[in-house]
Design a protein around this nucleic acid. Structure first.
Lengths: 161, 161
DNA sequence: TGTATTCCAGATTTCGGTGTCCGAATTCAA
DNA sequence: TTGAATTCGGACACCGAAATCTGGAATACA
């Protein structure tokens, strides 16, 4: 698993918020229900986004979460970094502490190619694009209630266990 | 962590065997000592290599492990696949079960690029190359006893905990 | 044949990621 | 002012990966 489950849930929730809420606050319980996740667990996940500034939250009735800035200014890299950290983009494939340009591990040069490509993509892929793809996907699948057909499918799979 | 620790230990051990043993059987206890790993644990890791045919083992005095075929015919992909499996090369970044060409997730196209590049590199990078880089590295660092300077360094870091 | 050496197989423990739960703090509305 | 709705923060349980331990089987050699 390249990303932790916690991180994946966070990204899915962010896509949902970006695609569904039009700047309004959305209750976490609603998001949790749509994605078929535990409400309490999603709460903890999203707290990491809010403390990183990617989202803002508001307590009380009519409260909830919203994007902290425009979806075109939130990248996949931002989301991954605020939950899983940046190790994925910097670490050695063989887990060797000293590995770098000066003291490369046997696989260093090859792995750096992959790492850099991933970093580049993650930093250029915005939440706006992800949300747009998600809605486009919905049109193609022409699925019923939710915009998040694919994510909904994952949720169904998850529920089976 | 892109690879499991188990997998990393296995790859390190394989590099050691390829670089140090000249076709002879090497005792697992020797490898474990060099890499500063638990002997019993490394035993279990290497069993996965032997059952996959990447290595052969021999019991009794003068026994140990050796490469199952020439180091140029063992790829990084082989080693990863036999311990961590092939999910890494096929799975969706967002963990969506149905994700694929037909029903792509919002990040599918971008992730596939990275995944393919990694797969290509892993399938073309052989144990022979890795072992050569390891010895080359040693020359550059001109470090004392072991050929595996970088790996040795990692082992030292590990021991600190 | 006996013994030391080595890998094999399985049970057990440790540990970190995952997930649950509950009380506290904040805000809105009656 | 009171009560309901909501996020916040921490405590705790669960589960699979990581690591350890124990006994057994195969082999070489004296």
């Amino acid at each position: 698993m390249i990303l932790s489950k916690t991180c994946i849930y966070g990204i899915q929730a962010a896509i949902y918020v970006a695609a569904e809420s039009e700047g309004n606050y959305v209750s976490i319980s609603v998001v949790a229900e749509k994605l078929h996740l535990s409400f309490h667990f999603l709460t903890k996940v999203l707290q990491q986004f809010t403390s990183a500034g990617l989202m803002t939250s508001y307590r009380g009735p009519k409260g909830g979460i919203a994007l902290g800035r425009e979806s075109k200014d939130i990248t996949l890299y931002d989301m991954i970094a605020s939950i899983d950290g940046t190790e994925l983009f910097t670490e050695c494939m063989l887990g060797l502490p000293g590995c770098g340009h000066a003291e490369p591990c046997p696989a260093h040069d090859h792995w750096v190619e992959v790492r850099q490509k991933f970093t580049l993509i993650a930093k250029n892929l915005t939440l706006q694009q992800l949300a747009k793809n998600a809605t486009k996907l919905n049109v193609r699948l022409s699925d019923s209630s939710s915009v998040m057909s694919a994510i909904d499918f994952a949720a169904t799979e998850r529920r089976k266990r």
